[in-house]
Amino acid sequence: NQASVVANQLIPINTALTLVMMRSEVVTPVGIPAEDIPRLVSMQVNRAVPLGTTLMPDMVRGYA
């Protein structure tokens, strides 16, 4: 089972991601792999991401 990136807090739209906003968790469906967390830092979300939501590739500008 692969860990995915999950929002550690509410992340408002257009917010640049920081390490404290994300955690890794084994979830279904699988989202962005946890090993990509360092790559996600400073990328912006293109929608509001509620606490506990799995980050999907289409939620992060420039990721996919």
Rank of each mutant, 00 (worst) to 15 (best):
N1C: 06
N1V: 15
Q2L: 15
Q2W: 07
Q2P: 15
A3P: 07
A3M: 11
S4E: 00
S4I: 02
S4A: 03
V5I: 15
V5P: 02
V5R: 01
V6I: 08
V6Q: 05
V6Y: 02
V6D: 01
A7R: 00
A7N: 02
A7E: 01
N8G: 07
N8S: 15
Q9V: 10
Q9Y: 13
L10A: 14
L10S: 15
L10Y: 13
L10H: 14
L10D: 12
I11A: 01
I11K: 00
I11Q: 01
I11F: 00
I11E: 00
I11H: 00
P12S: 12
P12G: 08
I13R: 05
N14F: 05
N14R: 07
N14V: 03
N14C: 06
N14L: 11
N14H: 09
T15H: 08
T15I: 05
T15C: 06
A16M: 10
L17R: 00
L17M: 08
L17W: 00
L17Y: 00
L19E: 11
L19R: 09
L19P: 12
V20Q: 11
V20I: 11
V20N: 13
V20L: 14
V20P: 08
V20R: 09
M21G: 03
M21Q: 05
M22S: 01
M22W: 01
M22T: 02
R23M: 10
R23G: 08
R23N: 07
S24D: 12
E25A: 08
E25R: 03
V26A: 09
V26S: 09
V26D: 15
V26M: 13
V27T: 11
V27F: 02
V27R: 06
V27Q: 11
T28V: 09
T28F: 06
T28W: 04
T28D: 15
T28Q: 06
T28E: 15
P29T: 04
P29F: 05
P29V: 09
P29R: 03
V30Q: 06
V30D: 15
V30C: 12
V30G: 09
V30Y: 06
V30L: 13
V30K: 04
G31V: 01
G31A: 04
G31I: 01
I32Q: 01
I32Y: 02
I32E: 00
I32W: 02
P33L: 13
A34D: 15
E35A: 12
E35Y: 09
D36C: 08
D36Q: 09
D36W: 05
I37A: 09
I37H: 03
I37G: 06
P38K: 14
P38V: 13
P38D: 11
R39N: 05
R39T: 08
L40Q: 00
L40S: 00
L40C: 04
L40D: 01
V41P: 03
V41G: 02
S42Q: 12
S42W: 11
M43L: 09
M43R: 11
M43C: 03
M43T: 05
M43V: 04
Q44W: 05
Q44M: 10
Q44T: 11
Q44C: 15
V45Q: 01
V45G: 01
V45Y: 00
V45P: 03
V45F: 00
V45S: 08
N46I: 15
N46Q: 09
R47T: 14
R47W: 11
R47N: 15
R47S: 15
R47Q: 14
A48Q: 08
V49E: 01
V49Y: 02
P50S: 09
P50V: 11
P50W: 09
P50I: 11
P50D: 13
P50R: 13
L51H: 13
L51M: 15
L51Y: 09
G52K: 04
G52M: 14
G52H: 10
G52R: 06
T53C: 07
T53I: 12
T54Y: 02
T54E: 01
T54R: 03
L55K: 00
L55R: 00
M56W: 04
M56S: 14
M56N: 10
M56D: 05
M56C: 14
M56R: 07
P57W: 04
P57A: 14
P57S: 14
M59H: 13
M59N: 05
M59T: 05
M59D: 14
M59C: 05
V60R: 00
V60T: 02
R61H: 12
R61Y: 13
G62H: 15
G62R: 05
Y63A: 04
Y63K: 04
Y63V: 04
A64N: 11
A64M: 14
A64Q: 10
A64G: 12
